[in-house]
Design a protein around this nucleic acid. Structure first.
Lengths: 230, 230
DNA sequence: GACTGATTAAATCAAGTGATTGATTTTTTC
DNA sequence: GAAAAAATCAATCACTTGATTTAATCAGTC
């Protein structure tokens, strides 16, 4: 009776049903393992084992491995995109034809992402997102791309309007810094922590706060004014 | 006669000898393929094929795949570390007990890396370094770590001295931004370029320049002063 | 109580992985 | 020019990968 394992109808199924059906179990297990070992590093077999389902189930529900990844992204990104869009739209409306505030735009884009770190599975997905955004496999990056593209363009456009002091080229490179900073913070495998000793432990609001301060200052820094046409 | 291929003693060997011996050929081919497909994404077979050597050669010269990666890092990082150390030491000596300039410290650390993008194979290695620094496999990250650790600690210590206005926690998180920005810029798979259209084409000094401006402003931004003990 | 469509199970495929072997060739050294 | 060392070769090992196939099971409905 105390045995877990096959014939999962009474015991295992009940505790599993709390989490969800097989499909949900797969999604959650995959999310955890992708976060831990990366997309290519986590095999379907390991995922199936963790989800306690048969090897064929994944192809039944998601067709292929990439479909599984896509499903994870859709599950997590959709609500975040909604929040981002709302906040960006609010800023847009508020600023009208004027130049919006840099830090407001940044916060509208970043906060919804970092905040979700605390949600159930949020930390795992944050890491997946970060890892996949620099994955060497174009197909993987495409998944990230498809998920974020629309809102990212909105964000970029608004941020551009908030930075009239920069040329396009300057703006371009500084955006690298934004994405890089976000990406690195979401990845976090403890390298910086090591270099500094264990003084930087309190992952929480401070991370978001410092990220925003840093990026705002970086974007607000005056440009050469002599680089390109503007 | 015009055939390339096996029995590589006359033709192929001569043109290969210009590049170097088999060992060097392997290193260069591996560097290119690691940069393109990542460490785990590039198989030894594909590397061997590109280097036109036998499958066993790699184990003969480098023992295992990780040994090959290590060799690449040693080949590229050693001279860069030397330059970084010299420049950091120069700043240290110059500033004495006072607080060094933030942008000088940053430049001493970053310029030697970015500059090498233009050198032979530099672009490839830059990408390898960036990818491996966030690789999910701890063994891969360890290679990066071992290569950069000593100098990174030196850099961190000096930068810390240049930022007395920050608490440890603030400094910690802002360092994330530095590494992230560098990492993302060195990775570059064209995501930002797409979002902005093709206006940001001129990869060159502007990248370094904007990176430095951005990071300097970010580090110099005042801290709360109310976060931790300082 | 059989039928139907959805789900799960077990077994297996073809391809690719890093690594190793033992023999052979090439180069060096005396 | 023989002995020793360095380098190269073809063949293969044991294993993992994503994907597929075929058969069994289950619910719900008429």
């Amino acid at each position: 009776m105390a045995q877990t394992g096959h014939r999962a109808s009474a015991d295992a199924a009940s505790s599993a049903a709390e989490v969800g059906e097989a499909k949900t179990r797969i999604l959650l297990a995959a999310e955890r393992l992708f976060a831990e070992h990366g997309y290519s590093g986590a095999s379907l077999r390991s995922i199936m084992a963790a989800a306690e389902v048969n090897t064929a189930s994944i192809h039944y529900y998601f067709r292929h491995k990439e479909g599984l990844l896509r499903a994870i992204f859709e599950m997590r990104v959709a609500p975040m995109n909604e929040e981002r869009q709302e906040r960006l739209a609010a800023i847009e409306q508020q600023s009208g034809d004027g130049t919006p505030e840099v830090d407001a735009v940044l916060r509208a884009f970043i906060e919804p992402a970092i905040r979700r770190t605390r949600a159930q599975g949020g930390q795992a997905f944050n890491r997946i997102s970060a890892l996949c955004s620099v994955d060497p496999d174009p197909a993987v990056r495409q998944v990230v791309f498809d998920s974020y593209d629309t809102v990212s363009r909105h964000f970029t456009a608004l941020l551009r309007k908030a930075c009239p002091h920069l040329t396009d080229e300057e703006f371009y490179w500084r955006q690298h810094c934004i994405y890089g900073s976000m990406m690195y913070m979401r990845t976090d495998n403890g390298r910086v922590a090591y270099l500094l000793g264990d003084r930087g432990a309190g992952h929480s609001d401070t991370a978001l706060q410092q990220l925003l301060v840093f990026l705002t200052a970086g974007m607000k820094a005056p440009g050469d004014g002599a680089v390109a046409g503007a």
